[in-house]
Simulated assay, not measured.
Amino acid sequence: MELKGIYVPLVTPFAEDGSVALDALEKLAGSVLDDGAAGLVALGTTGEPATLSAEERRAVVEVCAAVCAGRGGRLLVGAGGPDTRAAAEELAGLRARVPEAAAALVTPPSFVRPGEAGTVAYFRALAEASSVPLVVYHIPYRTGQQLSAAALLELAAVPGVVGVKYATGGLDEAAVELLAGRPEGFAVLSGEDAFLPALLALGGAGGILASAHLATARFVELAAAWEDGDVPRARALGHRLTALAAAAFAAPNPAVVKGVLHAQGRIPTPDVRLPLLPAGPVEVARALELATGLDH
């Protein structure tokens, strides 16, 4: 299995009464796939899964799975947790619950900080138990666990681990070493929207990007430009998309993205659930302006 291209970690739209707006989610999922996204992520950070009930999480995954099945997109499902036994059990049954799942997106265990050796052992245990391939979600400013290039390359060699969403706040030496030494078929995907152009230039396979909600076709175009070797087009478009990405993260994710999607009439409210707060009008207006400007 080779992961490649732009994946959109879908927001969870909320209706006026606070319930999950599943109809809006279905339309949003279809629109980003129609615009060229390689696939969707259900229950990624952008989807606010920690604030969803178990029933709501199941419904979100079902909608995303149906849309991917109908349009040929790949579905990644957020899974895992600090309890290794519970995470392994969840992953063992994922294929049966969600036959459309192409892979699971799994963070190192948050708060525990097991060290690099413990993190690698954790993923070995999960990969052995899992019914689907795993993508490591390396985001140390959320998990508290940093990983060196050596640890990442060790993870890349684990059977059943097929990629990493690299979200360390930028591009560092570890990312460069990982890209240079990764085994064939192991995908390095940007999890930092503003650094997608740089990661693609270094040989990255694509990205899992919240801001791609707002300009899916343009992000797909950027990835294609790098693959085609069209450096002038890739650089020019990359600068514009980096500005959009920065604006989309001017407030805690996914508040700005939801504000823009609501302003565009694509979701019924801009609401997020506490402890998140909605983005302010200035942040939303700036991101909307940049997204609209990409069409001109």
Rank of each mutant, 00 (worst) to 15 (best):
R233V: 02
D172M: 08
L52W: 03
Y166M: 13
G39T: 05
R58M: 05
C68V: 04
L22S: 06
G204S: 09
T51H: 14
T84E: 15
E90C: 11
V136L: 11
L241M: 07
E221K: 13
A129S: 04
A225V: 14
V188H: 11
R74K: 15
D228C: 14
L294S: 04
P275D: 07
A167T: 00
T242S: 14
G206E: 08
L202I: 08
P159K: 11
G36T: 01
L152V: 10
T119D: 11
A248C: 13
L25R: 10
R74P: 11
A86N: 11
E128L: 10
A149K: 09
A150K: 06
G47R: 04
V282H: 15
T45Q: 15
V63H: 01
A50I: 07
T242A: 15
V162S: 05
E56N: 05
T143P: 07
V164A: 11
A205T: 02
A125Q: 06
V11D: 02
L76E: 01
E2N: 15
D35A: 15
P82A: 15
P133N: 05
L155S: 03
K165N: 07
D35M: 11
V120C: 08
L147K: 12
T242P: 13
L3R: 09
V188D: 07
L189C: 08
E100N: 12
P13K: 03
G93D: 07
L209W: 02
P109V: 01
Y166I: 08
L189A: 05
G238N: 04
L200Y: 01
C64W: 00
R124Q: 12
R233D: 05
A217Y: 05
T107G: 04
S148E: 04
V77G: 07
I6Q: 15
A246W: 10
V176A: 15
G80W: 00
P114E: 06
D271V: 11
P114W: 00
L25H: 03
P114V: 00
A187R: 01
L28V: 11
L290D: 00
A121N: 01
A54K: 10
G72V: 04
S131N: 08
L43P: 00
R74M: 15
L276F: 07
A212I: 06
F186E: 02
E2F: 13
G259E: 03
V8C: 09
S148W: 04
A198E: 14
